[in-house]
Design a protein around this nucleic acid. Structure first.
Length: 279
DNA sequence: GGCCAGGATTTAA
DNA sequence: TTAAATCATGGC
């Protein structure tokens, strides 16, 4: 076991886990277990310090996973200086949000499931897939399951997938698993520039512009992407008083405005808007 | 019982 | 090029 220690001024565990970018974590002891791919780590926050407990071999993976090299102060300050009130407020509330560098393949499957769905249900479906098709692992004495590989998913019957509550998305998951298992390399996509990669992702069945932007942001570490979902659409209409109706144009509007900072500011806005109307 | 959720696809205009 | 219909599922 090894510990990564990090100042918590721009790292809040609860906000980072609950802002809708990650679906696999659970409260444990005085912190949280977080799962990615076949790996796990344990996060705690006290006395102004985040401590991340990892297996020796996973230190580099989770250092990158939690985006520990990025200057969050710079982006947060920029957002707080924005002329639109909700951007300032969301940056204050979301100051501790970090964009996680998650596994690209896991993000592909996860965000295909996310379409026209809600976060609690997405979590349940993913938990089911891990429990049913992932491998059994233990970390700090706790049992968990790895996220199933494409090879593990491709063996599943459609009827099995539907037990996960995937609905019509089951066919997308099955198709994607089949494509990857038969040689399509997600890894090699990392060499694409952002626009080419977005186009490539959209060409996959079950992935449109919004999901592609989520995968770009959370799975490929591309901050120059701005997913527009129902909440962001509300922000655009209610707080920016925008006139565009198509999500494509709304995305373009925010991309032009925030450029390389778009990804994090999008998370600020999503988390803030959703927290207002959820209770 | 209709509306909504981190929408995408297909078809029609 | 954009608009509307359709697609499961569960919580409210």
């Amino acid at each position: 076991m090894k510990q990564i220690v990090f100042d918590d001024e721009y790292f809040n565990i609860v906000d980072t886990l609950n802002c809708g970018q990650i679906f696999r974590f659970r409260a444990f002891d005085d912190g949280f277990l977080v799962f990615s791919k076949d790996k796990a780590c344990f996060l705690r926050q006290n006395n102004g310090v985040i401590s991340i407990t990892v297996n020796e071999d996973d230190e580099n993976y989770f250092y990158r996973f939690f985006d520990l090299d990025r200057d969050y102060k710079k982006i947060n300050d920029f957002a707080k200086s924005d002329g639109v009130e909700i951007v300032k407020k969301s940056a204050e509330l979301g100051k501790g949000i970090r964009i996680l560098n998650q596994d690209a393949e896991e993000m592909l499957f996860s965000f295909v499931i996310s379409q026209n769905n809600n976060i609690p249900r997405i979590k349940k479906s993913i938990e089911f897939l891990c429990r049913e098709f992932g491998r059994k692992k233990t970390f700090m004495g706790v049992e968990y399951r790895s996220f199933p590989t494409a090879n593990e998913l491709v063996g599943a019957e459609l009827s099995q997938l539907k037990e996960a509550g995937l609905g019509y998305r089951a066919e997308y998951i099955s198709g994607l698993a089949c494509k990857i298992a038969s040689g399509y390399s997600v890894e090699s996509l990392k060499n694409f520039n952002t626009d080419d990669l977005r186009a490539e992702l959209i060409s996959l069945k079950g992935i449109g512009e919004k999901v592609a932007n989520c995968v770009l942001l959370f799975g490929f570490n591309r901050y120059d992407s701005f997913p527009v979902d129902t909440w962001i659409e509300k922000v655009y209409k209610e707080d920016f008083l925008g006139e565009f109706t198509s999500r494509h144009k709304i995305t373009a509007f925010f991309m032009e405005r925030y450029k390389d900072y778009a990804g994090l500011i999008q998370q600020y806005l999503f988390y803030y808007k959703r927290s207002l109307e959820k209770r």
